[in-house]
Amino acid sequence: MIEVATRNKLEATIVSINGDVDLYSSPEVRKVIIGLTEKKTPVIMVDLSHVSYMDSSGVATLVEGLQQSGKYNGKFKLYGLGMAVREVFELSRLDKVFDIYPNEETAFSSLA
């Protein structure tokens, strides 16, 4: 079962996902992320360090979040990608489209 939690830190809202993101669970992730973009959350960071598997449904959800936040000039960043998740982004050639950081610290450093 997937867990999706949010917390605020400085100017960012961090979305922490725990579990596999696939066709079954991606609607839960989408609900949270799109909820934040509808509120025009200025900085959204998605913590993927506890995601061991992601398929195209999960990638599509993140693409939607990126595009929706872009409509109001919000920032949408990802961090903590493991091998399997990073590979899906690379195979999709989306690793250059997203702002991807190794961890929370480097993601926040990028805001400075």
Binding site: D55, S56, V59, A60, T61, V63, E64, Q67, V88, L91, S92, R93, L94, V97
Partner: peptide, 18 residues
């Protein structure tokens, strides 16, 4: 087309890539 950045439509590409 992978240059067309939009949600969805990646599954077939991933299958062929893998």
């Amino acid at each position: 087309d992978l240059d067309d950045i939009r949600p969805g439509g990646l599954g077939v590409h991933l299958i062929h890539s893998a």
